[in-house]
Design a binder for these strands. Structure first.
Length: 184
DNA sequence: CTCTGGATTAGCT
DNA sequence: GCTAATCCAGAGC
């Protein structure tokens, strides 16, 4: 069943751990694309130097100040999108970057959405930019309410994750001491 | 207005 | 391991 407001409005690190094993669903005009989340990263508060919200509320970061359950999609390096879910209460900027999923449905369509010629399934959605490309997520999907959207949401399919690792976050130059990346 | 650099990736050395 | 690709947010003037 679909994750609701209560799920996303918990403390960010708790939501991040619980997102492992959940299923990300993207219903596009060409078909349904799904994958199981297996790597996430947390960005918490304006004091988090690695978070976009370190500069405060701006046009780009305002969605991070929404209540939990909204999408935050941004363009990185001019060519890839990154998909985040906003967490916690209104006016507290926090979000979780979905870094990797395991494709479970619409794999043929994912291959078509990805630009690379030879992409093994294992390389299809194992990166934040890759999974957005595969699932057709762009800035058009920014600030969507994942608790009511008909096209983009996350479901609990009953998979339990017993063990996972927490490690420093990837690709950032500040605040690397925080082990806010979760993988299983 | 201009400038800098980034929560990335693919392809090459 | 190195870097080009390519856009735009944020900062400074």
């Amino acid at each position: 069943m679909r994750l609701g407001r209560d799920f996303y409005c918990q403390p960010t690190l708790s939501v991040a751990r619980q997102l492992l094993g959940k299923t990300l669903v993207s219903k596009t005009s060409v078909g349904v694309l799904e994958g199981e989340i297996n790597e996430v990263e947390s960005y918490i508060g304006e004091d988090d130097l690695a978070s976009h919200a370190r500069v405060g509320k701006t046009h780009r970061t305002q969605v991070m100040y929404y209540e939990g359950g909204y999408s935050y999609v941004y363009l990185i390096y001019g060519m890839y999108y990154c998909f985040n879910v906003v967490t916690e209460r209104t006016d507290y900027p926090s979000a979780i970057l979905i870094r990797s999923i395991i494709p479970t449905k619409g794999i043929i369509l994912m291959h078509r959405n990805r630009k690379v010629i030879s992409s093994e399934v294992s390389h299809l959605t194992n990166g934040p930019g890759k999974l957005c490309q595969a699932l057709g997520i762009t800035k058009e999907q920014n600030a969507i309410d994942l608790t009511t959207s008909k096209t983009l949401y996350i479901e609990d399919r009953g998979k339990e994750i017993s063990t996972f690792q927490s490690t420093p976050r990837i690709g950032i130059s500040q605040a690397t001491e925080k082990r806010w990346r979760f993988v299983y």
